[in-house]
Nucleic acid binder design. Structure first.
Length: 485
RNA sequence: GGCGACGUCGCCAAGUGGCAAGGCAGGGGUCUGCAAAACCCCCAUCGCCGGUUCAAAUCCGGCCGUCGCCUCCA
């Protein structure tokens, strides 16, 4: 089966056909860096990370662009409000760019921890002011935009398709508008391309319309087409940005260039906390840096992938704890395989193992081909884990058997889903700690040989209390670090 | 008020016309000095009502409930 994706543009599943054979250009709306990343960011960027990884697994050369919004994102969308960055910077008495730098680094730190591959280009809005000004000029020249008092607005009436993505009509927007109408706008639904800024405004640039700063929607249009051309293949982002952000991107870009901005629009669903919407303004945001103190980032990643990217996801302790144990199961199986590497007999892969691996790969691919159904793909990995465990405990496997199984986990669970690292936690322990654990295991072995069960159990219990879980097996005692997972 | 999504086992979650994946938890076994891990077995007719169909969790209508967008947010 070929890859099918759910295109928000048209709201249906379509076969994915790249514009250029073998190449995919993908743009995902990045964060506005005025605070630390929260679990909403995690869901969004893990989802799109897996999409990028899977496209690469399929053999596409992907150019992944994800912007950093460091200017122009106002605190409300009536095109009034303050710039989020500026407001936060003045509160903290920082240069805006200083604030931006801090949170940009924090963002990448968290995304790295989650195992997301870095975008190929992370363009900043503030570094693309000339491109944005050019775009505005083009829109004015073509009659889609107008200037008032040093601000420029996009005229939605000039673009009849406005609403094509979100399924809204301009009239409805105007009627339902709860925000105060900006008197400068000809139509209340018009949106700002450029906002005039007074001298007191510290983040501003000179333009043909005087000093000011670009509107939020503009950056994605300018940077997306700059690095990926227009149209490009995939535009991703959060569902809440479908309107007005993405709708406005489409309008600007298509009005200016006469071509659609992107062919496939993918939207991930939202995160709730204990059943309630999470919002920075609601004060119930869970920051990743806090969450990572309680759960390994890979557990969070696994938890996210256990549901579909287009489904909402509710964060609860109970669900995360279950995810923790589920991921451990997968890791245990991979660990066992890796310990068995090189221990099998000579010979080719047995037909039975080959068939098991083939089936797992087929199930995995057909799940991922179906609009990136990671939950079903995970089920294929769990089936593989069970089979692998059975093969290992049955014995009589060849080295090639173990390699084939391990490779499947490394590629599907590792390269594609990113939840099976090349080095699992307990394999990373080294040095003094490792020597001490082995010393205790050796002592315990002697107690056991003398049937001094109390002493042996005490060692095991106390190690367990420290997060080191011992496991007695026919071939000897091994350990697992539970705290690390 | 307008638009949209969803409601599947105790919990999480796949499944969009043909006998309901997977994970966690639970019960019963095997292995083990005991554990742990692992393996085997057991554990749901899909919010409610009505309709279409040989056949519906899957399609249509109504109702109830939850969530989201329409205002900053991934």
């Amino acid at each position: 089966m070929a890859l099918h994706v759910f295109n928000s543009l048209g709201r249906k599943r379509e076969e994915f056909q790249p514009l250029h054979e073998g190449f995919v250009g993908m743009y995902v709306c990045g964060p506005t860096v005025y605070d630390h990343a929260h679990i909403g960011h995690a869901k969004s960027y893990v989802s799109f990370d897996v999409i990028v990884r899977y496209l690469r697994y399929l053999g596409y050369q992907v150019r992944y662009v994800q912007n950093i919004t460091d200017v122009g994102h106002l605190t409300d969308d009536a095109d009034e409000g303050e710039d989020k960055i500026v407001r936060r910077a003045s509160t903290q008495r920082l240069e805006p760019m200083e604030l931006v730098e801090t949170y940009t680094r924090s963002y990448f730190e968290d995304m790295d921890a989650l195992g997301n591959v870095r975008p190929d280009i992370s363009p900043r809005a503030s570094g693309h002011i000339p491109e944005q000004i050019e775009l505005i000029k083009e829109l004015i020249d073509k009659g889609f935009a107008y200037e008032v008092n040093g601000s420029v607005y996009f005229s939605v009436e000039k673009f009849p398709e406005y609403g094509m993505l979100s399924g809204r009509r301009i009239e409805e927007l105007v009627e339902g508008a709860r925000v105060e109408v900006n008197p400068e706008k000809r139509n209340p639904a018009d949106f700002a391309l450029w906002k005039r800024a007074e001298p007191a405004h510290i983040l501003r640039w000179n333009s043909p319309w005087g000093w000011g700063f670009p509107g939020w929607h503009l950056e994605c249009s300018a940077m997306g087409s700059k690095y990926l051309g227009q149209p490009f293949d995939i535009h991703g982002g959060g569902l809440e940005n479908q309107f007005p952000h993405h709708e406005s991107e489409i309008a600007q870009s298509q009005a200016a260039h006469g071509e659609p901005l992107a062919r496939y629009w993918l939207h991930n669903n939202m995160v709730t906390v204990g059943g309630q919407k999470m919002g920075k303004s609601l004060g119930n945001a869970i920051f990743l840096k806090d969450l990572f103190r309680r759960y390994d980032p890979l557990v969070v990643r696994y938890f996210i992938l256990n549901s579909h990217y287009r489904s909402p996801l509710d964060f609860t302790d109970e669900a995360l704890s279950a995810a923790e144990r589920g991921l451990a199961r997968l890791h245990n199986s991979v660990r066992a395989l890796r310990r068995a590497l090189g221990r099998g007999s000579d010979g080719p892969v047995s037909p039975e193992v080959q068939r098991t691996v083939d089936e797992a790969r087929a199930a995995f691919s057909s799940a991922m081909d179906d609009d990136f159904n990671t939950a079903a793909a995970l089920a294929a990995l769990f089936d593989l884990a069970r089979a692998a465990n059975t093969f290992l405990s049955a014995g009589g496997f060849t080295g090639a058997d173990v390699e084939a199984l391990e490779r499947a986990f490394r590629e599907l669970g590792g390269a594609v889903l990113g939840i099976v690292p090349d080095e699992l936690p307990d394999e990373a322990v080294a040095g003094l700690e490792e020597d001490l654990i082995h010393l205790l295991i050796e002592l315990r072995r002697e107690f056991r040989a003398n049937r001094q069960w109390q002493e042996a159990d005490a060692i095991r219990d106390r190690l367990a209390a420290l997060g080191v879980q011992l496991e007695d097996k026919p071939e000897g005692t091994t350990y697992r670090l539970e705290a690390a997972l």
